[in-house]
Design a protein around this nucleic acid. Structure first.
Length: 450
RNA sequence: GGAGAGGUGGGUGAGUGGCUGAAACCAACGGUUUGCUAAACCGUCGUGCGGGUAUUUCCCGUACCGGGGGUUCGAAUCCCCCCCUCUCCGCCA
C-alpha cells in the first residue's frame, strides 16, 4: 500500500508505473473517493463536536449534584429565585435536547454515506501497486528480464542424460504416478533417498542462514486472510491460494507471509532493526491458470518445501538496496555450495508483482529444460507491505516510520532437485551426492537404485 | 465439543452511563542531585484519520478501552453477535 498523500501528489507517476507493471487500477476513482471521504470526515467531525459539547452540557444540567448546577443555584439568594433558575435550566436542557435530536439524523445520514466510501477507499488502496524502482528494467514479461551475471559451468554430458523424472523413477526415489493417485495433478511422492536429499538441501540452506545470523522460525502456514492482505498476496492473488473458507483462513504459498507479518501491528524500536528471519515451511500453490504449463516433473507443483529469508529494516532506500544484495548473495552462496550453475536476472516491470519495487531471480541450469529455470526470487518492497501490515518503528527522535521489508528464497525443494539430480547424474544411472549434502546423508557419495 | 473466568495504553492494573483518552504503579525517555554500578526527586510519555498562514519534533478536531452491531442527547461502562486467552472436563497427534 502506498501513502494516500503520495498518490494525491504523484498520481501520474502512480498511473504510469501501474501500466509498466501491467496491473490495472483506477487511480482517478480512488482520488475521487478520497476527496469525498475527507469532506465527509470534516462535516461529521463538526457535528460530533456539537454533540459532544452539548451532550456534556446536558449532563451537567440534568445532574443537580454537579458543581455547575450547584454554582448556579448558590447564586440565587431566595427560594423562589432558585426555583426559577431550576426551571430555566430545565427549559434550556430541553432546547438543547431538541437541537441534538435534530442533528442525530444528519449524522446518521452522513455515516451511512461514509461507510461505503471508506470501504471503497480501503479496497481501492489495496489495488494500487508499488511503483517499480528506476533500477528495474521496463519490459512486458519475463522474456525481457535482464541477465546480470552467470555463475558456474554448464555441464556437457558425454552420454545421453536422463531427465529428473526418469532418473527418479529408475532410482525409485520419485513416484509421480502414485503422488497423482493420492493428491491429483501436480503432486508427487519422494521416497528413500529422494526424501532424504530433499531434507538435506533444506537443512543445508537453513544451517547456512543461521550461521549468517538469521533467526530460524517455525511458523503457521494456515493464516488469517488479513495476513494475506497485509503481505500483498490478497486481493490480487486470491485465485492462487488454497482457502479454508469454513475457517476464513488461507494456506500460504510461502513462509514470507508469516515471517513478514510476524511483527504486524507493532511499533518496534529502531535498535531492534534489522530483523533477520528465516523459516522452512511447506508452500501451497493452486497454480490456477497454469494448466498445461510445465506439466511434467517436479517443476510446477501444488506443494513444496522452502526455506525463506526475510529482512525487516529501517525506512532507508540505500539500506534496503544493500540488504537486497545481501539476501541475494545468501542464496547464491547456497547454490555455490551445491556447485550448481545459475544466472541472476534483473526482473523487468511487467514481471514484477504488486508490491515489489525490484526483484532479482536466480535461475538454475536444468538440462531437461535445456535452459535456466527460476529457483529463487529476491524482492524488495520498501514500505508496501509494512503499510498494509502496520509494521512500524520509532526512531531516536521518537518519530514513527514504516519499516522496509525484503525477502528471498534460500532454497525450494523439490524444484532444486531438478538441477541437482540431472547435473549430478552418472553414466551408470546413479547420482552423485553433492559434497555439501553428504553430511546430511550419512556421509554417502551417491544415490543408487534402492 | 461442554462448563466457568476474563480480554483496558509497552507491562501490571483501576474504572460499571457524562467532569475518563482513560487513575495508580512499573518500564522507557529527558533533566536535577548525590557524583564508580546504584538510589532519590522533577518532568515527558498511545495510535489512526482530518484540518490548520506548523510544513524535523506545533496547534485544533475526531475516532479508537478484543472485533462488529444496538440502546442513549451521551458508552470502556448497558444489550446482542463473533473472536481470542486462561481453568476444568471430553477427544486426540
Amino acid at each position: 500500500m502506498l501513502d494516500i498523500k503520495f498518490i494525491r501528489e504523484n498520481s501520474e507517476l502512480v498511473k504510469a508505473s501501474a501500466v509498466d507493471k501491467k496491473i490495472r487500477c483506477d487511480v482517478d476513482r480512488l482520488l475521487e473517493v478520497d476527496q469525498r471521504r475527507r469532506e465527509l470526515q470534516l462535516e461529521l467531525d463538526k457535528y460530533r463536536t456539537t454533540v459532544k459539547e452539548s451532550g456534556q452540557q446536558l449532563g451537567l444540567m440534568r445532574n443537580p449534584g454537579s458543581s455547575w448546577f450547584k454554582q448556579l443555584i448558590d447564586k440565587e439568594t431566595s427560594e423562589a429565585g432558585r426555583e426559577e433558575a431550576t426551571k430555566r435550566v430545565k427549559a434550556e436542557a430541553e432546547r438543547i435536547q431538541a437541537e441534538l435530536s435534530e442533528i442525530k439524523p444528519k449524522i446518521k445520514a452522513l455515516e451511512e454515506e461514509e461507510g461505503p466510501i471508506l470501504e471503497e477507499f480501503e479496497a481501492a488502496m489495496l489495488t494500487i501497486p508499488q511503483p517499480a524502482d528506476p533500477d528495474a528494467p521496463v519490459g512486458a514479461d519475463d522474456t525481457e528480464n535482464v541477465e546480470i551475471r552467470t555463475v558456474g559451468e554448464i555441464r556437457k554430458f558425454e552420454f545421453e542424460p536422463k531427465d529428473h523424472v526418469t532418473l527418479g523413477a529408475d532410482l525409485g526415489i520419485i513416484d509421480i504416478e502414485r503422488g497423482v493417485k493420492l493428491g491429483g495433478s501436480r503432486n508427487y511422492i519422494l521416497k528413500g533417498d529422494g526424501a532424504l536429499i530433499h531434507q538435506a538441501v533444506l537443512r543445508l540452506a537453513q544451517d547456512m542462514m543461521v550461521e549468517r545470523g538469521f533467526t530460524p522460525m517455525v511458523v503457521p502456514v494456515l493464516v488469517k486472510e488479513e495476513v494475506m492482505y497485509g503481505t500483498g498476496y490478497f486481493p490480487g492473488g486470491r485465485d492462487q491460494a488454497y482457502l479454508c473458507e469454513r475457517d476464513e483462513k488461507s494456506l500460504v504459498g510461502t513462509a514470507e507471509v508469516p515471517l513478514t507479518a510476524y511483527h504486524c501491528d507493532e511499533i518496534l524500536t529502531e535498535a531492534e532493526l534489522p530483523i533477520k528471519l528465516c523459516a522452512q515451511s511447506t508452500c501451497f500453490r493452486r497454480e490456477a491458470g497454469a494448466a498445461g504449463k510445465d506439466t511434467t516433473g517436479l517443476y510446477r507443483i501444488h506443494l513444496f518445501d522452502k526455506v525463506e529469508q526475510v529482512i525487516i529494516c529501517r525506512n532507508d532506500v540505500e539500506l534496503s538496496k544493500k540488504l537486497h544484495a545481501e539476501i541475494l548473495q545468501n542464496a547464491e552462496d547456497v547454490m555455490q555450495a551445491l556447485e550448481l550453475p545459475y544466472r541472476v536476472v534483473n526482473v523487468c516491470t511487467g514481471d514484477l508483482g504488486m508490491g515489489q519495487a525490484q526483484k532479482f531471480d536466480i535461475e538454475t541450469w536444468m538440462p531437461s529444460r535445456d535452459s535456466y529455470g527460476e529457483t529463487h526470487s529476491a524482492s524488495r518492497f520498501y514500505e508496501f507491505q509494512s503499510r498494509r501490515l502496520k509494521l512500524r518503528y520509532r526512531d531516536g527522535a521518537k518519530k514513527i516510520h514504516f519499516c522496509h521489508t525484503l525477502n528471498n528464497t534460500v532454497i525450494a525443494s523439490p524444484r532444486v532437485l531438478i538441477p541437482v539430480l540431472e547435473l549430478y547424474q552418472n553414466a551408470d544411472g546413479t547420482v552423485s551426492i553433492p559434497e555439501a549434502l553428504r553430511k546430511y546423508m550419512g556421509g554417502r557419495e551417491r544415490i543408487e537404485k534402492g
